[in-house]
Design a binder for these strands. Structure first.
Length: 209
DNA sequence: AAAACGGGGGC
DNA sequence: GCCCCAGTTTT
């Protein structure tokens, strides 16, 4: 699989558009998006930010008043607790601003590699490449990488894909993974990349037997 | 390494 | 009604 082929395919089929670059909104929206479909993330995020706009407001809110608006995102109890704690930590320890280093972001509850990288690239324009299950699975199927963990996939992708293409990759591959390159029952027959795909080739060989 | 967290949507 | 889902933390 040639990287240039993949990039041009993704750019033509999944034009990239980011809604907010405000660090606090990016961070909270990304927390809400964990294990949650995009439509439900949007609703939950919109509900929450129409009620509270600042870290201070969320830090002072009652837990149940945070839980209620974010219910559509699922995991709403744990997410509400983490969102309020994140707001309090940001106020107390980071002078009211979302930290802009990977290490500091990882100290926030509910923030792992993927979420921290989303904040770095979408809010601060840094050279980060968030890797989730879709990116991990698809990169291996296409033969871009051969790795066991998302962390290894991230390192390999960054060495193979030019920096200027890193930002849209995650969102594009997630969308591609949802409708075509699914975890199970992948729609290989209608996939625009099937001629170049190792996974597709192996599936066909297996079917032959 | 596996479990737990969860409402919403596909089937 | 059953199963899965833009992760992270805890056991």
């Amino acid at each position: 699989m040639k990287v240039s082929k993949l990039v041009s395919f993704l750019n033509s089929k999944y034009p990239f558009k980011i809604s907010s670059r405000e660090p606090f909104k990016v961070l909270i929206s990304t927390i809400l998006s964990q294990r949650t479909r995009d439509e439900n993330t949007e609703i939950a995020s919109s509900n929450l930010f129409s009620k509270y706009t600042t870290p201070q407001a969320i830090a002072d809110a009652r837990l149940e008043d945070i839980e209620s608006p974010i219910k559509p995102a699922g995991f709403y109890r744990v997410k509400a607790r983490r969102i309020r704690e994140i707001s309090r930590i940001i106020l107390r320890r980071f002078n009211g601003r979302v930290p802009s280093s990977f290490e500091e972001l990882l100290t926030l509850p509910g923030v792992g590699r993927k979420t921290a990288n989303c904040v770095l690239v979408f809010a601060y324009g840094k050279d980060a490449l968030p890797v989730d299950t879709h990116v991990h699975r698809i990169s291996n199927r296409l033969g871009l990488v051969s790795s066991r963990t998302p962390h290894q996939t991230e390192a390999k992708l960054k060495s193979v894909i030019p920096k200027r293409h890193w930002k849209p990759i995650n969102a594009q591959l997630v969308q591609f993974g949802r409708e075509i390159c699914r975890p199970i029952n992948p729609q290989c027959s209608i996939c625009g990349l099937n001629a170049l795909c190792q996974f597709r080739k192996k599936r066909l060989q297996i079917k032959q037997k």
